[in-house]
Design a protein around this nucleic acid. Sequence first.
DNA 1: CCGTCCTTGCAGACTGGCTACATGGACCTG
DNA 2: CAGGTCCATGTAGCCAGTCTGCAAGGACGG
Lengths: 304, 304
Amino acid sequence: MDLRTLETLRAVRSQGGVTAAAAVLHLTPSAVSQQLAALTAEMGVPLTERVGRGLRLTPAGAALADAAVDVAVAVERARAACQGHRDSPVGTVRVSAFQSAAQLVFPRLLDTVAGWDGVTLECADEDVALADFPDLTDRFDVVVAHRPDGAADWPAGVRVVPLFREPLDVAVSPGHRLAGRAEVSPEELADEAWITVREGFPVAPVLAAVAARSGAAPRIAHRINDFTVATAMVAAGHGISLLPRHTTPAFAGVRLLRLTGVPAGRRVEALLRPDRAERRVVARVVGALTALAAEIDHRAGRAV
Amino acid sequence: MDLRTLETLRAVRSQGGVTAAAAVLHLTPSAVSQQLAALTAEMGVPLTERVGRGLRLTPAGAALADAAVDVAVAVERARAACQGHRDSPVGTVRVSAFQSAAQLVFPRLLDTVAGWDGVTLECADEDVALADFPDLTDRFDVVVAHRPDGAADWPAGVRVVPLFREPLDVAVSPGHRLAGRAEVSPEELADEAWITVREGFPVAPVLAAVAARSGAAPRIAHRINDFTVATAMVAAGHGISLLPRHTTPAFAGVRLLRLTGVPAGRRVEALLRPDRAERRVVARVVGALTALAAEIDHRAGRAV
DNA sequence: CCGTCCTTGCAGACTGGCTACATGGACCTG
DNA sequence: CAGGTCCATGTAGCCAGTCTGCAAGGACGG
């Protein structure tokens, strides 16, 4: 009954298999399998069962994995209690963010942290399907994620820190027939060619809601996940798109039109594993992140 | 940051030194010292400091040790959660009891547990000074301890399960001048020669209270810790003693007289470390123990 | 029915932790 | 004040646990 072994069990559950867990833990599948075998022997209860060519946790295994979360939290709390007798927290924090948030947040966050001795920040941009964001918390301490208004809550077991809400505007090229307008309604967009994200990604449901309001199925011309690329394509007149208001640069060559009649926006949140959240450095970075978010919110409020 | 290392830190604190901790953990002092060094290096904070030729935990070390208790509890809770998906708990439980309780309880407890598959009981008789009972929980899962009425509570951090209260009677030989009496008052015992336990042991304060009531300092003829030996000496007329009512056999050849005017008794309790208490087998054994205690209490109530 | 993917078993190498022994202080005692 | 004793701490060497690499056994899909 080792801390590493319990961590492995959790990874097997969250990643859904030995091989995937091994990848996250930087181990070989063989090592993971052996750890599971040893843990099962120690417990005297089968913790995993074969399902197809994969693997699933038994109820006993799931119960143990649940309890393992509390263990990990207790360990990190112990570490924090000890670090509390130090002048300031130190360590390295791994942060991931989806593309546009990364662009907005990483530079300033790195500026802030540069002034902290002993704290190193490892940044990575990771844009995944909505359902896959929580899994990223296995690899990162802080995961900056986004989900559209009205989407389901994140699953239990992941800690959520709200950062800011960002409206989605309709982006059109300067030469577009609606370019001079300040606002548009869904009905006016019925025949437009859309550039949107791949199926399952965070803002897709918003376009669906807009289309439902207009009555017609949206005509999707291109599927582009990277907002920078989408912006360039919109600017060149290859279609219109829903783009986040704050993370679309003013010099991008597109016009952003307020959308009326449909609440279109996304919530940007930080996702953390409970044990990681206990680390004092992590808490400090999250604090800086929320401060940054408050600033963005403030600026947004002033702009609107 | 290993579970074993945290356990070692706790042992160093509770045992008050590297050597003593090593003895409890079945390790060499060198191994304990190395674990402490590694843990200190990992934490980046001094956890121990030299005091004389011994060692003491720094505030940071104490905080870590405190938090380590929660870790150990979480681990045992995890184990229990897993064992909950098994038919019945198994494992081995180490129980210690002071001499007279051991005599009263061990045989019947072993009878009960004999019917449980996969559960083994390791019994040991350990009678130590009042202050040393809590430390025994490092070596045993369940420690049956006793303390006189009015004694201070056990220190925080140890879980206490009350078992029963046992009155202390005055034991005299059949030929003694008071042998025919049913009750005696402290004043009538002013000139008696006493057989009592060694200084610091659980019933010593009771005799002090009795003597204080009689006004004179007690004349202590012998210091005998084992009640069986004391009983034999009282029976032979070498003095009188305070003996527990229920654990003194009727055929011992002494007369037990109720003591009036002074609340003389001791509380018998089970002491457990919080993490050990989480083990399902341990909880089951404690359950059997309290059932036994209730039976003793009932019989006592009937007898009185 | 064959190819592919995933888990699992086995042999070998290696890292990490423990034991045994020696060293250096600190208290106690004569 | 000096020798003895106790305690913590380093050092060398051994042992065990664990990981890697490779091979085998099933299960799904074309």
